[in-house]
């Protein structure tokens, strides 16, 4: 685990995160229940409660370039553990969004790439087409061989469909992507 050194701080970072995530981070008393319960904490560079502390300290760059915000899958286990109802998952959503908008170096580019492939699939078909998502993801990662045997096993068991399940009204799906910009 890294030591936190206060060097440059962003004054309004904590307010911005709280407003966007509608989560009151001042309620956190750092009891570590979230970090203890989080199934992904041991793979993160900073524990979830440490991310809250760093947001409070205004360590914007350090937070937005952390792996923790990308390894959080939003399973809400932390919310079940938290005695003060801090919406950790909403904070993580906000931080990922900020990391993309601020164009910082993404600590887990493969995770972001996967999300983008899923969203591309929804844009094309209105639903997710898993085989194509996997193939496009593997292509973009230049990873052609891992999971090849798994893919074949899944195909042989008909777990992966060759053809996508589609929404008929494509225009409505495209319109949703326009609506989304308005809702962000």
């Amino acid at each position: 685990m890294d030591t936190i050194t206060l060097t440059s701080v962003s004054d309004n970072f904590v307010q911005a995160v709280q407003e966007k995530s509608r989560s009151d981070l001042s309620r956190c008393w750092h009891c570590l229940c979230c970090s203890g319960g989080c199934p992904f904490a041991k793979d993160m560079d900073f524990f979830p409660n440490v991310i809250i502390r760093m947001v409070q300290m205004g360590l914007k760059e350090k937070v937005l370039t952390s792996s923790a915000i990308w390894l959080c899958v939003g399973c809400n286990t932390c919310s079940m553990e938290c005695p003060n109802a801090v919406d950790m998952a909403a904070m993580m959503d906000t931080l990922r969004r900020m990391a993309i908008e601020e164009k910082v170096t993404i600590a887990e580019p493969a995770v972001l790439s996967f999300h983008q492939k899923v969203i591309d699939s929804i844009s094309r078909y209105g639903r997710t087409h898993k085989l194509e998502i996997m193939m496009r993801y593997k292509l973009s990662e230049k990873d052609f061989f891992s999971d090849m045997d798994l893919g074949l096993r899944m195909l042989s068991r008909r777990k992966l469909d060759l053809m996508p399940s589609k929404v008929k009204n494509k225009q409505q799906i495209q319109a949703l992507f326009k609506l989304a910009e308005d809702l962000s």
Partner: peptide, 25 residues
Amino acid sequence: PDWNCCGSSSTHSIDSGLALALASR
């Protein structure tokens, strides 16, 4: 009829506006 993806983890992870739009339809 003609339902679409709920938005899945991927939209709420990086695009909350899209998550709301897809689920709303």
